[in-house]
Design a binder for these strands. Structure first.
Lengths: 149, 149
DNA sequence: CTTGAACCTACAGTCGCTGTAGCTCCTATA
DNA sequence: TATAGGAGCTACAGCGACTGTAGGTTCAAG
């Protein structure tokens, strides 16, 4: 009913989010469906900006979309206690802490590998050797099967 | 030509890798195609075990499959200097270090959020509030758009 | 010889986007 | 008012690294 004045491109620019990503969030039900112009283009208002900022901020904090969905539900129905939000955040914190622990072990291992590599022939390459023979490394549990990158 | 005596299931058990994953590695050209029985089942030998162990170890160290592919090429053609292997490992180390840095910033932010949440109504919930308003957090750059989990 | 666990292929789904193709719309300028 | 072109639209494929499923076949123990 108020001015729904932002195009999707404007919204994208304002929140540092790609246009396709906004449409994706709408498709998976994180963003409410906006008004459309006569020509079928989306027009957004202030609440959409807030909503998208919330989502992006949650993503930057590493929350999976499902957690963000729950947090949005909690934020919308402002009556329940915030214990739920707290426990979502706590479990995200735990996740982050365990990721850090694993990455630190990893870093130590990679350091060892790289420092021992004398730059000679592959026959003597520590990097290849360590990878070939797990017993040569300190058997920290590295990463659990996690996607790289 | 020697005893190709391991079934895919055995190989999986020995290396802590799922059967489908081994078939996947074969499909994407990381594992060499094994011999087959008359009934078309895969049979593996010692070199396959070594190869798979190399791949898994690389994955545990967080190397993407593409890096592992390069490392395997280097290991196979044992003549070239190991500078390449070294630089692959170094860039993986850098990647890991930057991930750690980002996660530490993240952890601080989540800690702040969680500690301030008094367990009251959503109206006062710090978790939701901080997510809603980026200016309330310390503007560390969090994570760059990274997939969660 | 029978049973059933393990194998086979092929393909869909996961997560969170990102990119592309092939259109239509909106708006600024001439 | 006509036109150009940037921005929007939908639908779908692709990424990485698997994982799961359906529907069938093979192997080895009893």
């Amino acid at each position: 009913m108020m001015e729904q004045s932002y195009t999707i491109g404007r919204l994208a620019k304002d929140t540092g989010c790609k246009v396709q990503t906004i449409r994706y969030y709408e498709k998976v039900g994180l963003m409410p469906t906006p008004d459309r112009t006569a020509g079928n283009q989306r027009r957004y208002g202030a609440r959409h900006i807030e909503r998208l900022a919330f989502i992006r901020h949650g993503r930057q904090l590493g929350f999976p979309l499902e957690a963000i969905r729950q947090l949005l539900r909690l934020a919308d129905s402002g009556e329940q206690p915030c214990d739920s939000a707290d426990s979502i955040a706590r479990s995200q914190l735990q996740e982050v802490e365990s990721r850090i622990a694993r990455l630190l072990a990893l870093k130590a291992e990679l350091n060892r590998m790289v420092e021992q590599c004398a730059g000679g022939q592959v026959a003597d390459c520590r990097v290849i050797e360590v990878l070939s023979d797990h017993s040569q490394c300190l058997h920290v549990n590295h990463l659990e099967p996690e996607e790289a990158h």
